[in-house]
């Protein structure tokens, strides 16, 4: 089908570089939409799943009024948020206040450009994919800091400062955990990282890199400001942290970016440590043993569930505990583990 589209584009352009350029841009836009639209819908239902799952864990029912089993609740929420007035606080830095949610959302979406969905299926299958994702996720912090500062509010500013410190600290541990993965798979390309894990459940990276899996997932929780590391939001102390002054559509953008990042971290955990689209079963099992997009979906869904599970289970950390875990436990641990992994790879153990 892809060849047919390319052939059709060539026939329409007829050798004219301008029309060919326009068609390429249009086709790229279609591809981008085909990634982002399912992502946004996924975010919408993830918010519903969050309320349902946590409701179940706390022996409640959760939303069940809008549509069958509350399935239309996300759409009701979206309509509600979009209809609300956008309030700009007095004394706020107006330009930055409006631009801040976009600064968080744009990198959160841009990161999906290199995310792999199956062997060779990605918007851009680049060599330095892993590095690109790290760079993009490190940019989301700007929206948080700028939003907190621009809203001219003490709570917002405190939330922004907490968030900046937390994200910068945990990024280091996350980076080292990823360095271990690329040491083992000899590549920063997602396709090659997954291919290096071929051979069933016990040849996936989670077994040799178990401590790094834990570090990566916990750092992922901290990077996305999720419980138990949700101090930047901290409802019970600083009201809602950096987005306390935001209402309506800009608030919805922050929300969208946070959930898109959570899905990204879940998907990356599946790709980096759990074999991506590879099947856990031997190839002789027919359809169950074949590697496919569905396996990646299942694994990602499990880690998305784990995000909610953790939120319903653990109380919030104290701020000094967050910093201690990041700087005094994770960073030394990961630095040592990078050396250990490098030695094991050199010795041919992994």
């Amino acid at each position: 089908m892809l060849e047919a589209i390319h052939a059709w584009m060539d026939s329409v352009a007829g050798g004219d570089p301008f029309i060919a350029g326009v068609l390429t841009v249009a086709w790229t836009l279609v591809k981008i939409l085909s990634v982002l639209l399912p992502l946004v819908i996924c975010v919408a239902f993830y918010t519903l799943a969050e309320r349902k799952v946590i409701g179940f864990m706390q022996v409640r029912i959760g939303p069940n009024r809008v549509g069958p089993f509350g399935l239309l609740q996300p759409f009701a929420d979206v309509v509600k948020l979009l209809m609300k007035e956008i309030i700009v606080p007095s004394g706020a830095n107006k330009g930055l206040f409006i631009i801040a949610p976009l600064l968080t959302l744009a990198p959160a979406f841009a990161a999906w450009a290199v995310v792999p969905f199956d062997a060779g299926v990605a918007l851009a299958d680049v060599n330095a994919g892993l590095l690109y994702i790290l760079a993009m996720t490190s940019l989301t912090v700007y929206g948080v800091i700028v939003g907190g500062w621009a809203s001219n509010s003490k709570y917002g500013f405190l939330g922004a400062l907490r968030s900046a410190a937390q994200i910068v600290s945990y990024e280091i541990a996350m980076g080292f955990a990823i360095v271990c993965v690329l040491l083992v798979s000899h590549s920063m390309n997602f396709g090659e990282i997954v291919n290096a894990q071929q051979g069933g459940f016990f040849s996936w990276n989670w077994l040799p890199l178990l401590p790094m899996l834990v570090v990566y997932f916990v750092s992922g929780l901290a990077e996305t400001n999720r419980a138990p590391f949700d101090l930047p939001e901290g409802e019970s102390e600083i009201v809602a942290g950096y987005f306390v002054e935001y209402a309506g559509a800009p608030f919805a953008l922050y929300f969208l970016a946070e959930y898109a990042d959570m899905i990204l971290v879940s998907l990356l955990t599946a790709v980096l440590f759990f074999g991506g689209w590879l099947s856990p079963f031997p190839e002789s099992w027919g359809l169950l043993g074949a590697s496919s997009f569905v396996w990646l979906l299942v694994k990602t869904a499990f880690f998305m569930f784990a995000f909610l599970w953790v939120r319903a289970t653990f109380p919030r950390f104290r701020y000094d505990q967050v910093m201690r875990l990041g700087w005094k436990v994770f960073i030394p641990l990961t630095i040592v583990w990078v050396v250990v992994t490098a030695a094991l790879v050199k010795g041919g153990v992994i």
Binding site: A128, L131, Y132, L134, A135, S138, L139, V141, Y142, I145, W149, F157, A160, L161, A164, A165, I167, V168, E171
Partner: peptide, 22 residues
């Protein structure tokens, strides 16, 4: 290019902004 974004934009300038804001 990516390490410029990762190191300078993602980490160094965040700390810069952190100090300048306060």
């Amino acid at each position: 290019a990516i390490s410029l974004v990762l190191v300078y934009v993602g980490a160094v300038m965040v700390l810069f902004l952190f100090v300048v804001m306060m």
